[in-house]
Amino acid sequence: MKYCLIIALLALCSDNNFAQQPAHAQKEDFSDDWAALSKYKNENAALPAPAVGEKRVVFLGSSIFEFWKQKDPKYFSSHPYIDRGISGQISPQLLIRFRQDVIDLKPAAVIILAGSNDISNDKGHVTNEGIMDHIKSMSELARLHNIKVILCKYLPVYEYPWNKSIKPAEKIVDLNNMIATYAKENNFTVLDYWTPLVNQRKGQKKELTIDGVHPNLAGYKIMQEVTEKAIDQALEKRK
């Protein structure tokens, strides 16, 4: 009887200890966060307001901008520049993120690089006019909040390694022409990434890219030069 009581007590203690063990936390499901608002949410919350006289600039785009900070972090850390690129994003996702990742950060200017992922993921429904609608909406939001607008002529792409059925070169040329025309009509600054990187077949120069789409460090150094000129030009413009 004595041994039975001891065994019962041990079993009870074991059950209590098991019950007190924390259950494994389930991994948070972000499948409802189509625009990846969660990616920079914490960084944005920790970011202080711009200092007096600070000319903060937000870089809004996809992998071109996200990889830039990875390859040349000093460029961003040595300037009041905020990189808000998310690899793979299309223009409507950038538009959804615009308030959180641009307006709320109170920049002096925003650089908008959009369109290539829309084209590379096209299943027959993407048009340059549709891409421009999203670019126009972002530009109008920026202007409403006194943020200088810098619109990028997209980098040249002859072929996407992950989707060789798409022939993007001419479509990017046409999109860039539309961006330049819209910018001129609205007194926005044009940042031309296409011209200094392009080769004879309207793709990127081999020595400046890792895959025909994304620049290498040498390519980013060239982009840095034209970016600085565009930022200076934009910040000098009257409201």
Rank of each mutant, 00 (worst) to 15 (best):
H125R: 01
S78Y: 09
I179C: 11
R143Q: 05
S139L: 01
I135T: 02
P50H: 08
D133K: 11
N177R: 15
A218Y: 01
Q100A: 13
D122W: 00
N16Q: 11
N44H: 04
K239A: 12
Q26I: 08
F67N: 10
I111V: 15
K221P: 01
E43L: 15
P48W: 08
L10Q: 02
N187G: 06
M178N: 13
L10Y: 04
V58W: 05
S87R: 14
G203H: 04
V173C: 11
S91I: 07
K184E: 14
N44Y: 03
K206E: 14
W162N: 13
L217Y: 03
A234T: 07
G219C: 06
S78D: 15
L197C: 01
L235G: 08
N163G: 09
K184H: 12
E170I: 11
S91L: 07
R201V: 15
T181D: 15
I111E: 07
D15F: 14
S63E: 09
M178Q: 15
L12R: 05
L197Q: 07
Q20N: 06
I6D: 02
G124P: 02
G124F: 01
T127M: 02
M132R: 01
L12N: 00
T209L: 04
N121Q: 10
S116L: 08
S137D: 11
M223E: 09
I150F: 07
T181H: 14
T127P: 01
V52L: 13
E129P: 00
A25H: 05
I119Q: 04
Y3I: 06
K136P: 02
M178R: 15
N186L: 11
I172Q: 06
D104I: 01
K69A: 13
A45K: 14
Q233N: 15
Q224R: 09
A46F: 10
L208H: 02
M1C: 00
L151M: 10
I6V: 14
H24I: 13
D29E: 05
A51I: 06
S91T: 14
E236L: 15
I222Y: 03
I96C: 03
D33F: 07
Y3C: 00
A35Q: 10
L235K: 09
A35T: 10
P215G: 08
A35V: 08
K171D: 08
I179V: 15
A49W: 04
N146P: 00
L175N: 13
C152R: 00
A23M: 04
I231T: 12
D32S: 13
K206V: 12
G53S: 12
F188A: 10
K2A: 05
L217R: 07
P50L: 09
I166Y: 05
A36Y: 11
N128D: 02
G219D: 07
V213P: 02
Y220V: 06
Y158H: 14
L105R: 09
E207H: 03
L144C: 00
S139Y: 02
N121H: 03
C152H: 02
N163H: 12
E140P: 00
P107M: 07
T195M: 03
K205N: 04
V190K: 10
L235W: 06
S87T: 14
N187C: 05
Y154L: 13
P196W: 01
E159G: 02
